[in-house]
Amino acid sequence: MEHIEVITTTQRRRRYSGQEKAQFVALAMQAGSSVSSVARQYGIAPGLLFKWKKLMQDGGVTAVEANDQVVSSSDYNALLKKVKQLEQMLGRKTVEAEILKDALEIAQAKKYISHIPLLLPPDDIQHNK
């Protein structure tokens, strides 16, 4: 005899915490248990539980090999985006610094020119008065 479930309402996606996912994967990996049976028991799509199991196995191996923690791909992508933003900001600041340096050189050159006395013949100075 099979059990048939009729769904009459639309439900939003359920969000599982990392701890819940790890618990479901651990249950599926116990001796005498299967991913499909755990998925049916907790109302999870089997494909989703298989995916969590693979991710946990791959992530666990990666963490052990690297002797480091595993970072989610969304966190990794967010960090890459932040690095790109910071690189762009650094580029703009570098250009600003170059412009200010050039402006300072020009200002200093004009300052020296304005302090040089005019070398006009004495009779030209008196005609201008």
Rank of each mutant, 00 (worst) to 15 (best):
K111I: 14
S33W: 00
V6K: 09
N67R: 13
E20W: 00
R15W: 10
F24T: 00
L120M: 10
T10Q: 14
S74D: 11
L79N: 15
Y42C: 00
L55M: 08
A78L: 06
Y16W: 08
Q69Y: 11
T94A: 14
A28Q: 02
S114M: 05
L119A: 13
K129L: 15
L79E: 12
L79I: 14
N77V: 02
E105G: 13
S74W: 07
N77L: 08
I7G: 06
I7V: 10
V6C: 14
A39K: 01
D102P: 04
L86Q: 12
K129V: 09
I99S: 08
Y42E: 02
Y42T: 01
E5K: 04
F24A: 04
V35H: 11
V70Q: 08
L80P: 05
L80T: 09
L90P: 02
S37D: 11
E105W: 06
S72G: 07
T62M: 15
N77P: 03
S114F: 03
A22R: 00
I113T: 15
D58Q: 13
D102F: 03
P121E: 08
M56D: 09
K110V: 14
A66K: 04
W52I: 01
T94C: 14
V25S: 01
I113M: 12
I113Y: 07
Q88V: 07
T10L: 14
A45S: 04
P121A: 10
